Amino acid sequence: MLLSKQKKNQNPKGNRLLISINVLGSAGPIRFVVSEEELVASVIETALKSYAREGRLPILGSDIGDFLLYCPLLGPDALSAWDTIGSRGVRNFMLCRKPQHMKVKEADAAAETLSRSKGSSSWKAWFNKSIKISSH
């Protein structure tokens, strides 16, 4: 009898978790249910949509690339966007904007990748690399 009840309660998508996400500057946490196999990036997207739908302040926007998800219990490092939300075994998180210097580094990396894909035929790129002006 006990085995049949356990089989009925198992979800084919994996276990589901009630998670709580605090947003810096907001009045209280956002709570919703997710599959433990869901990616962190998807959880950030869901949190931003829920936050906007509830009309909370401050207004955050909807670009998931501008935010990082932290777990205060695990340390100061942000979770990777490709991790599963259930991989750490915790249910309380903090959603924060990316620091400005991280956004600049990502933009620089994207520009460098784009310039590599175009090749070195641009005389402006060659000129900027070859001329170095020093200030006294």
Score class of each variant (00 low, 15 high):
123 W>P: 05
96 C>W: 00
77 D>E: 14
80 S>F: 04
47 A>M: 06
120 S>W: 07
125 A>L: 14
75 G>N: 02
29 P>H: 15
53 R>Y: 12
14 G>K: 02
62 S>H: 07
42 S>D: 12
79 L>T: 00
74 L>I: 01
59 I>R: 07
18 L>C: 15
105 K>E: 11
121 S>R: 10
122 S>T: 07
69 L>F: 11
67 F>A: 01
87 S>A: 15
2 L>M: 05
27 A>W: 09
86 G>W: 15
63 D>E: 11
32 F>P: 02
96 C>K: 09
19 I>Q: 03
22 N>Y: 15
45 E>Q: 13
100 Q>H: 08
99 P>W: 02
93 F>S: 04
18 L>Y: 12
42 S>P: 01
26 S>P: 04
70 Y>A: 09
28 G>A: 15
69 L>W: 03
56 R>S: 01
105 K>V: 13
129 K>Y: 10
107 A>D: 12
84 T>C: 05
17 L>Q: 07
128 N>Y: 13
124 K>T: 07
2 L>H: 06
118 K>N: 12
123 W>N: 12
58 P>A: 03
94 M>I: 05
130 S>C: 08
28 G>H: 08
90 V>R: 03
110 A>G: 03
107 A>F: 12
4 S>Q: 12
31 R>Q: 14
75 G>C: 10
17 L>W: 13
85 I>L: 03
48 L>A: 04
95 L>K: 01
76 P>L: 04
20 S>A: 13
95 L>P: 10
106 E>F: 15
120 S>D: 08
71 C>A: 14
18 L>E: 12
32 F>R: 03
60 L>S: 03
72 P>I: 05
72 P>V: 04
64 I>R: 04
26 S>W: 12
118 K>L: 15
14 G>D: 13
84 T>H: 13
52 A>G: 01
51 Y>C: 00
17 L>I: 12
101 H>K: 00
126 W>R: 13
113 T>E: 06
52 A>R: 02
78 A>Y: 02
111 A>N: 09
24 L>F: 14
34 V>D: 07
42 S>K: 06
68 L>C: 06
70 Y>M: 08
109 A>K: 08
108 D>T: 09
115 S>L: 08
66 D>C: 09
73 L>N: 05
25 G>R: 15
36 E>V: 00
